[in-house]
Simulated scan of single mutants.
Amino acid sequence: MQLARGLSDDPGGWWWALGALALYAVISFGLQYRTRARRGARHPARAAAHDLKDREEPQSGRQRFTSRLIMAGGAAAVVLAAAFTTGAVRVVTVGIVAVLGVTAWAYYDHRAEAGASREQ
Rank of each mutant, 00 (worst) to 15 (best):
D51N: 05
A48G: 02
H43M: 06
R39L: 08
G73Q: 13
R64W: 05
I70T: 06
R34W: 02
I27S: 01
I70Y: 06
F65L: 15
V26T: 14
L31Y: 04
A72V: 04
V79D: 00
I27W: 09
I70W: 08
G30D: 10
G30T: 06
T86F: 03
A72N: 02
T85W: 02
Y24T: 10
H50L: 15
D54T: 15
R36A: 10
Q63V: 03
E57K: 12
Y33V: 02
R68C: 10
A72G: 02
A81H: 00
T35E: 12
H43D: 11
Q63A: 09
R68Y: 09
K53Q: 04
A81M: 01
R36V: 04
F65T: 13
G40Q: 12
A25D: 00
G87C: 10
S28P: 06
Q63W: 02
Q32N: 15
G61T: 00
D54V: 15
F84S: 05
R39D: 08
R39F: 03
R36Q: 12
T85V: 04
L69M: 14
A45S: 02
G73S: 14
R42T: 03
G40K: 11
R39H: 03
R62F: 07
R34H: 02
T86W: 05
A83R: 03
P44N: 05
H50T: 14
G73T: 10
Y24D: 15
M71P: 06
V78I: 01
